[in-house]
Design a protein around this nucleic acid. Structure first.
Lengths: 327, 327
DNA sequence: CCCTGCAACTTGAACGATCCAATAATGCAC
DNA sequence: GTGCATTATTGGATCGTTCAAGTTGCAGGG
């Protein structure tokens, strides 16, 4: 076991005071170049690492960010959450922060966890995913002056807090354009029942694009809860109309998979989220730029923590269409 | 902003000393029942939460565990890692620990991260996933006396450290038995090339079960890197033999998916890992008990941290077969 | 010549918990 | 009532860092 190396050890080795070493680390501009170099050398020689606990106790900041990891499979999930988490961890590390996980059964439970984590001074900020209309969590945090960023915008009032989101409408617009460009004229949309911000946005993108190309979207639109069976049913329903669609834009890969089964390979289908399922079966799908989104979340959050706490920022990212064999 | 509540505030409120409050929290047996209750009430009234940073500075323990989150898609990944992480976080929280994430490009990079995290006294232990033959990381950690548990056993020397693993051979054995019981006699195995511990174990389960039922496994076995195309190719190869198999046991859902496509619905197929892909397309698959495995990892790790540091423990869990439509 | 201002650095105290050693309270036998 | 062991409680020191205030040396203005 090597000797414990503290800031005092470094100070003695470099023949300066503790505070000067601290300044080299935190406010280098206060230290003369020559001294700074000498201290840096001592740090390197001794292999000194700052003791986060001690720093945290003094400054009250832990350089730890928290993200909820969900047990369920709705909203952002599976490999989507997986890739998002990796992006967060990577971006946070680059800025000297760490990412911590927590679980919660529901929003109320999550607020209890907020209290726990904050009161024991364990962390500095939150990244929230899967925000709903009038999300209680965001109000709770804002009220207490806790810094946070959401992945997913607050649909009621866009500038209430900082967020990063993917332009869902643009995703389905790209999908619809692709189908139109490959010759389709009657393009159906299979999405979720009206009312969810994300779902409505995805429907909008399809609808607006149809109209932009002078195609009538009337009657080509079905809504059902997420699921393969539901997607299949919607597709069958649309295919038995007098003028059936020749292609489908779907609000999720699950719905798309159902549509694909129902159509038996005779319709073009595009899904949403680019899940492993899509990759596995060659489903063309709209892909969210998750690493980028994660990095922007961290940027925003750290901006709030380090810098100007006034005002909020919003970032809207464009998804991209991953063309495979189904469209 | 409410007043800051420290152990001193609680002590004053309950008319005892700081040390007594500390004892109530850490060594309740030293405190008289009556006093203990009074202190607990003061804690509840004031909403006191222990300051983790201060505790950590004194005790040198952070109550933080770390897990690597991988960018790539091999080994344990996607929704598998997702579910495992949730299990870890949940189990850790129950024991008063938190889970932190870190990234690394390769094993060497990971060891550099170990150094960083440990030197700054940021965490107490590691959960490693995806261990290889003669994993350098485990040697490095063991050498330094750092506590860790792996999910996946060290194939060279089982008792070198503590681990939790799923009985892969039992999984393919269950799959093979299921196929035999539903009337199949010629059952092929599509796995990875020999040499990986997990892959060889999965092949073993199939082979042993075949022999146990007096069925000859000779010539029914193919190996290829993981992937849908590879699975399809192996299946086609097996189907063109003089006595082709009527069913396939596969080492992964990806390989199974390929086999399914190649067989065109005329063969029974069973995959491994019960990924969302399997659920989506109705693929029968072997499911790993991830929440349970995660909980056992945490149990073992915390045992090592809190209690007896002597000896290692091993836990082998049985997977279960999720029967869907393909077998 | 004194005072002010500045840069570069030093010193003592504080953050909030736990550990340690010493003290006070209690019970019991003689 | 005294002595002694047992248990419960106390005050002080401590972990490693940063904050606030202070010291030193030197240049320039009045």
């Amino acid at each position: 076991m090597p000797e414990k190396v503290t800031i005092a050890t470094v100070a003695a080795h470099a023949q300066v005071s503790r505070q000067t070493v601290s300044n080299v680390l935190n406010s280098p501009h206060l230290v003369r170049e020559e001294t700074r170099v000498r201290v840096q050398e001592a740090i390197a020689t001794l292999g000194y690492r700052i003791n986060q606990a001690a720093r945290q106790m003094r400054t009250g900041r832990s350089r730890l960010l928290a993200v909820r990891i969900e047990p369920t499979r709705d909203g952002i999930n599976g490999s989507v959450l997986d890739r998002f988490l990796h992006g967060l961890t990577f971006a946070a590390a680059a800025a000297g922060y760490r990412v911590m996980l927590y679980t919660a059964d529901d929003d109320g439970d999550e607020i209890k966890t907020f209290e726990d984590l904050l009161a024991s001074h364990e962390l500095d900020g939150f990244v929230l995913t899967g925000t709903d209309h009038g999300d209680v969590r965001t109000f709770w945090l804002a009220e207490r002056g806790v810094q946070f960023v959401t992945f997913g915008r607050p649909w009621d009032e866009p500038e209430r807090h900082s967020w990063v989101d993917v332009d869902n409408a643009d995703g389905t617009a790209q999908a619809t354009r692709r189908l139109i460009e490959t010759g389709h004229r009657r393009i159906g949309f299979i999405g979720w029942p009206a009312g969810s911000g994300v779902g409505d946005d995805r429907r909008d993108g399809w609808q607006r694009t149809m109209k932009a190309y002078d195609l009538d979207p009337a009657g080509l639109d079905r809504g059902a809860p997420d699921g393969i069976a539901q997607g299949a049913e919607c597709a069958r329903d649309l295919l038995t109309t007098p003028e059936p669609p020749t292609a489908f834009v779907c609000a999720s890969d699950s719905l798309a998979l159902g549509a694909l089964q129902a159509a038996g390979g005779r319709s073009a289908v595009i899904g949403f989220d680019d899940t492993p399922v899509a990759e596995a079966i060659g489903l063309t799908s709209v892909s969210q730029p998750l690493p980028d989104a994660a990095a922007r979340c961290i940027d925003l959050l750290i901006d709030h923590l380090d810098g100007n706490p006034v005002g909020t920022s919003q970032v809207l990212l464009k998804p991209s269409l991953v063309v495979r064999t189904t469209a």
